[in-house]
Write a protein that binds this DNA or RNA. Structure first.
Length: 228
DNA sequence: GCGACAG
DNA sequence: ATCTTGTCGC
């Protein structure tokens, strides 16, 4: 797939993404199941980690798997490299009998030049509420973010608030939250902040990152289900 | 025209 | 993402 073809696909799919207004869409309940996913790469192998927990913090399962990729990383087209292995991983865990109400993806949702980051593609393909949470931004934003945990600034695109700069820990660099699908930006912020314990990255995504990294390094992972 | 650019 | 040493802090 050429960059031009990928761009056309983004333009075709972006209008299908549902971004509820404040007070609308999905709201996380204490016992809802959350899947957080991340990938580490080694050559053409994508090592995926999936951490499953209830919203209030009970771990339900830890999973790792490897998938082959040919797709190169291109800024702005991350979804086409990352989403296929993520979707396969979700299917495998789903087949286990564990089903999520919410997905957390490492990367952007609509805070993207064409409003179609990896969290949008994963959300559309699964039909599940999905939040994108990234450690760097693709879009410029203005203003000074206050130092305190919970502080926010809007990320704008063409005058629309497409994402939020969120300080999850006092004095620590912020993260960038945006809607992937079916959940409002306000609820996305609330969820990410509530799931953030003592680190910059929220606990579920941090656990998924550790799972993926350990699997990429061929380490033994206690209590993890290994698909491949 | 040039640089910047999620993971 | 990955390539990499020491170092500061809980």
């Amino acid at each position: 797939m050429t960059p031009q073809e990928m761009e056309q696909e983004q333009i075709r799919l972006a209008p299908q993404v549902i971004v509820p207004d404040a007070g609308q869409g999905y709201f996380a309940q204490e016992d809802d199941v959350v899947f957080a996913l991340d990938i580490h790469y080694a050559e053409n192998t994508a090592h995926v980690g999936l951490h499953a927990q209830t919203f209030h913090g009970n771990t339900l399962g830890r999973f790792v798997a490897r998938f082959e990729t040919e797709v190169e990383y291109l800024p702005g087209f991350f979804a086409f490299r990352e989403a296929p292995p993520l979707l396969q991983m979700i299917e495998q865990v789903w087949a286990t009998g564990l089903t999520p109400q919410l997905l957390l993806v490492d990367g952007h949702g609509v805070a993207h030049p064409r409003r179609f980051g990896v969290a949008c593609l994963v959300g559309l393909k699964t039909g599940l509420p999905t939040i994108g949470c990234a450690k760097e931004t693709l879009l410029r934003y203005q203003g000074d973010l206050p130092d305190a945990r919970g502080s926010t600034l809007p990320v704008l695109l063409d005058g629309d608030g497409v994402g939020t700069v969120l300080r999850t820990q006092t004095g620590i660099r912020p993260v960038f939250v945006s809607v992937g699908h079916l959940i409002s930006l306000q609820e996305s912020e609330r969820v990410i902040l509530e799931l953030s314990g003592k680190y910059r990255v929220c606990d579920p995504l941090r656990h998924a990152d550790q799972l993926a990294r350990a699997h990429a390094r061929h380490e033994k992972i206690p209590d993890a289900t290994v698909f491949s």
